[in-house]
Nucleic acid binder design. Sequence first.
RNA 1: GGGAGCAUAGCUCAGUUGGUUUAGAGCAUCUGCCUUACAAGCAGAGGGUCCGCGGUUCGAACCCGUGUGCUCCCACCA
Length: 906
Amino acid sequence: MELSKNYQPQATEDKWNQHWRNSAYFTSVPDDRPAYTVVIPPPNVTGVLHMGHTLNETVQDILVRKARMSGFNACWVPGSDHASIATESKVVQMLKEQGIDKNSLTRDEFLKYAFEWKEKYGGIIYNQIEKLGCSVDWNRATFTMDDHYYKAVIKVFVDLYNKGLIYRGARMINWDPAAKTALSDEEVEFRDLTGTLYYLEYKLVNENGEPIEAPLEGRGGIMIATQRPETIMGDTAICVHPADERYAHLKGKFALVPLINRRIPIIFDEYVDATFGTGALKVTPAHDINDYNLGLKHNLEVVDTLNADGTLSEAAQIYIGEDRFAARKKIVSELDEKGFLLKKEEYQTRLGYSQRSGAVVEPRISTQWFVKMKEMSAPALKAVVDGDINIHPGDKFIATYKYWLENVKDWCISRQLWWGQQIPAWYDDQGNMVVAENEYDAIQQMQNTHGTVSAHGGKLVQDEDVLDTWFSSWLWPMEVFKGISEPGNKEAEYYYPTAVLVTGQDIIFFWVARMIMAGMHYKNLKPFSDVYFTGMVRDKLGRKMSKQLGNSPDLLLLIDKYGADAVRFGIMISSPAGNDLLFDEASLEQGRNFNNKIWNALKLVKMWQGRVSDHAGKHSTPIEAPEVTTGILSSPEAISTFAIDWFESRLNLVRKEMETTYSQFRLSEGLKTLYSLIWDDFCSWYLEWIKPGFEQPIDAEVYQKTLSFFEALMQMLHPFLPFITEEIYHLLKDRSVEDDLAIKQFEPLKESNHRILAEGELLKKVISAIRDARNKNQLKPKDLITLSVLADEREAYADIELILAKQVNADRVIYIKSAPANTVVIAVEKDKFYFESGKEIDSEGLKMELQKDLEHQQKFLESVSKKLGNERFVVNARPEVIELEKKKQADAVVRIKTIQESLAGL
RNA sequence: GGGAGCAUAGCUCAGUUGGUUUAGAGCAUCUGCCUUACAAGCAGAGGGUCCGCGGUUCGAACCCGUGUGCUCCCACCA
């Protein structure tokens, strides 16, 4: 079979995806093996995968595939989130484009459109997950509005209500005027900006309504500062500090709200900072949380001057129906015209924006549903603080987590939307309310507690609102196994708790903390043992990815261009846990190149397939075995024996390292390790060492060993790059389709031979040093040299001299006892190597270089000697450290001598 | 205003209890190679005040203090 010049991912990826799926490798059912469960952070059902998802899914797939290949019953549950606000606003937008106003629809009509939308676009995200190579169990795909899931959410609501952990009440909440719904505190994002502070004059009057003199000289008014002049019509007091002498005489006096002339009292409270602005504060209880609290304390009237959509209400008296920001402009100019606007000032401030709609959030008093958080937070805090749940990277997030849980406020869970789980509260026409899992139960309860239903025709009205999306997703690790709707079922018992949660650090409060709360509350068990926080994916300039900037690449286009393996490589290669990742297409190119490198190694090995010889012996040197003048006789077998032993040891060592790397979730580092093992150790060293000469046969044993090394490498790399590894695994030995890497189990770890590893390192060092010298002396790669070795222990070279000769293109290796004249000299550790350059040596340049090196070595020797001469060092340092320093010293002495000899010879 | 984290080569980052560190890797750069697996490649090379200052120690990139710069989270001063 002819192998293509370069690796071509497209056909390969589709083929294996299909095959894996047909073989049901990723379908999990409980069995005797330990479970390794991962639940996907469910993406928005109508969204597309962005680079952040790509990173998360890749990390999860690596962990899941590794576990599957290590004896675990791996189960990765995919799914999607109904994402109430985000999806509803998309559907509303879509309807608007079709000329349909949401308000003209009934709830059921709207939901029908929404479900149609979900059916149409919900599959996109699943398709992308599969394209990326994610080994999820599609049979378990769960949507947060599936029937059982919906019921579970309702059941939890009712349960928490009955336990007194959910309540309904009027509070000041965050209001999104664009989506026209309440938001939780977490859904508000603050942004710094420059605003304008308007200084306004309020006229003062006494008890009888007569104007009085006031601090604002000659004007009879008091000056206050505000960012929001459009709310003045909601003012119900002016507040000053009780100890502020400027205003002491205003006790019992009143101010008049400009433009509408409403009379409001002057009140005194220590809340006011007398040094800020004018020291006088307008109090607008309906539109500011602080003012609201002040209002409660001083029993002030609440005048809500805004409608739900952010326009001015009847209560505002003027500019009714105008948007708050338009009204602000008009009010400012009217205030200016009428002389109430005294001055304007630029001002650094922060405004809250709705995370979903982007609208400026309005503090608003409204009746909503809340979850009491205090009680539930304690076990969730303990689980993390005690180390029952491990967060990676740890120290960075534990403090944040702890602070939030210790200061958590009640969670506003009702949303004035239709898309989501409808709150299971029912009302009769007299305002009585019951909470029940369904209408039937509600009627029963209403009859029992209030006796009202039958008298009024059995009609109850269900609460219009739906629940916050996170009120459903906090049950995710439990309910994907029906752990809430069918508690104690076999699957839930087997798969829960899950192994690891991989998610972005931005949803630590929204989701992670709340899942822990729910898990502790309902199972008394943590939902996962480890949390792996990925950083945010940014562009290469460090900017967030956004549609506006157009710097958010399309995943499918990237996969088309580079292949899914290359995308996985690119996103993983520099993404240490918890650090932001600067996404650069160059890293995908690197991934593509790596795939190609592996592909070409396959081509090389496959070329040997027809030239395997049982009689070739183990020697497969490309050149005639070089003549070696030595007391020790190297056998021709040595070359391949050493290469095989060495690589086997490298392989075993790296396998061991990888186990540690996995257990610490250092996946990026693990990928680098494998990259280097394959590219450097396997391709650049091992394959070059054992490569037969042009059209020479290869020994059968060497060939078989090489195939099994290659296989082992593919197996180790499989979790990271599943497609190309599976493909190569099959091509290597022309395997049947049933024998697949995706489910192949790792062999037990083996020890590696440290002596051989050390010899290998020495060999690499010597080869590089001699090649460097060849380069510097302008020898062409084809120019043969004769290599002379001056070594204390010739035995050290017995195993490696043939490889050495081959790799530096030497026709002979001669062991000598003293330095020959007129040669290039190279010192590696304690040994010296010489060859004739056959060309004019650039003695001046060489001299300078040697001189520079000499100085460096002398300086080094000095520092080591000083250290060893220091009595306190010799007394305090560990013996092995001292040994090491002595070795360094000895090596330096030898090297200095070598350099001096070379200098003398020039 | 409170808290957390970071600062090592042009870029992105390793550096695990202070001593194999004479500080490493990948990418980028430079030099030489179209060597029959691979130019998406091969063989090499150059490149660092480990943010500044002070301290602890026989010894500091690492520990302590301090300053500077960046990032993030939290918070109800108009």
